[in-house]
Amino acid sequence: MNAMEKKTLRRLKWFFAWQDDQEEEWLRDMARKGWHLSALGLPGFYTFTHGEPQDVVYRLDFTTPKIDMDEYMQLFRDAGWEHLGSLAGWQYFRKPADVEGANQIYTDPESKIQRYRRLLGYLTLFLPIMIVLFTRIGDPSSVPFFSVMKLFSAVVLIFFAYAMVRILMRINQLRRR
């Protein structure tokens, strides 16, 4: 047990699935200021613990349930990455920038594209549910509650489609490199 109580900071910040690079950069900036990510809460909730400012690289990976977690985690550990936690399929890793080895977990565009494809495949699984929800939710003319729900499901559906377009744009961007 540490005698001195550690200073913690809770931050609420939202990143979309296609903004993983920005999220990584933000976490690195926080570490440079001495705030090190210590816990992941609900999506968008971050807890930081105060310590020495350090240049630490953060990387996010997206995994599907069919992954062999033991093998996967061992590979990252062996390569010098510390696993911080996972959130909705996203794995959070970090490594001090000066530790030997690549600062990337994906070292070529091909494999990075593969990762976005996994994410896209995962989102595609949910699309039919969204569409069914949208088409099945009551008749808007009947009760006000239903028209609110209809509007809500329309917003969700549009956002979903938008997310997929953004991820496809990321894939194209990587392909052009």
Partner: peptide
């Protein structure tokens, strides 16, 4: 010349 990161390696 080539460094293989753990994400790339697991995928491969």
């Amino acid at each position: 010349m080539v460094d293989v990161g753990p994400g790339t390696l697991y995928g491969a």
